Amino acid sequence: MSHARSEYGNFRALTPDVHDVVLGLGQLAAKSGLDKQLLELVKLRASQINGCAFCVHYHILQGESLGIAADKLNLVVVWREAPQFSPRERAALAWTEALTNLSGGVSDEVFAQASAEFSETELAYLTSAVASINVWNRYGAAYRWTPPARPKTSVNAAAS
């Protein structure tokens, strides 16, 4: 069993400037008008690839709070085989994987798929969202941040 080397709160306290810059980069995509549910799927997929338990759990909770169906959240890891994803979501997830696994570069096919679903501006903001979550994943995985607890209000709301 691995243990936390440090926690998210420690990172935030030690480097508030870095925290705010990375947070701000991620928020720009949502402010640009990109769908918040789509962005959560992207952040979840990158976090799965990078093995960041904190970020995977965090983005599952965020996705739930935005109304993403549980089956869709559960199937992000196998999105190619699951019918729940729209062509736009599939393009965003393929783009996310290509940018997260840069060893093979970004193929012309993935670029064409993403360009068919997103305007140039949207794709630039989507890229900033993928870049941001990859930065968060580096911190979360390196320091083994403890995944966040489910808010008590979510548990109570689900029970009613």
Rank of each mutant, 00 (worst) to 15 (best):
V56F: 08
V110I: 15
S115L: 00
R80T: 10
A129L: 04
A98H: 03
V110R: 12
G51K: 13
E109R: 14
E109H: 14
L75T: 00
C55K: 06
T96W: 00
Y139I: 14
V56Q: 09
R138V: 09
D71R: 05
V106H: 12
V78Y: 01
S119N: 03
S115M: 00
E81P: 12
Q48M: 08
E64I: 09
T100G: 07
A70P: 02
P147M: 02
I133A: 04
V76Y: 02
T121N: 00
H59R: 04
N137M: 06
Y58V: 10
Y143I: 14
T121M: 00
K152L: 07
V130T: 12
A131E: 09
P148M: 10
A82I: 09
R80E: 15
A131S: 15
T96P: 02
D108E: 15
E109M: 12
A69L: 13
I133M: 08
N134R: 08
F85K: 09
G67K: 07
H59I: 08
K152E: 14
R138Y: 05
E89S: 01
S103H: 13
S132W: 00
A129D: 04
S119R: 04
A149E: 14
H59A: 07
S132R: 00
A91M: 02
N137Y: 07
S128E: 05
R88T: 05
R144E: 11
H57K: 05
D71G: 02
G51F: 08
L123P: 11
H59Y: 06
R150Q: 12
A131K: 11
S128C: 06
E64Y: 01
E122T: 01
D71Y: 03
A116Y: 11
S107V: 14
I49M: 09
A98N: 08
G67N: 03
G140V: 11
A82K: 12
D71W: 05
R90Y: 08
G63N: 03
V130H: 04
E122V: 04
T146K: 00
T121Q: 07
L73F: 01
W136K: 11
N101C: 12
L93W: 08
N50K: 05
L99F: 05
T146V: 01
L61Y: 00
N74T: 04
I133N: 04
S103E: 15
E120R: 14
A53P: 06
T121I: 01
L102A: 15
A141S: 15
S119H: 03
Q113H: 10
A149N: 09
S128Y: 08
P147H: 04
K72W: 11
T127M: 07
F85C: 08
S107N: 13
A98E: 08
I68N: 02
V106F: 11
R150D: 10
V135W: 10
N50C: 02
E97V: 03
T153Y: 14
W145M: 07
A70K: 10
I68L: 10
P83N: 12
R150V: 15
L126V: 02
G140P: 13
L123I: 07
W136N: 14
L123D: 10
S65N: 12
K152H: 03
I49W: 05
T153K: 03
T96E: 01
D71M: 01
K152F: 02
P148V: 13
A142S: 13
Y125W: 11
A124R: 13
A70T: 11
W145I: 05
A91Y: 02
E64T: 10
F54W: 11
A92Y: 02
V130I: 15
P87M: 09
A92T: 04
L66M: 11
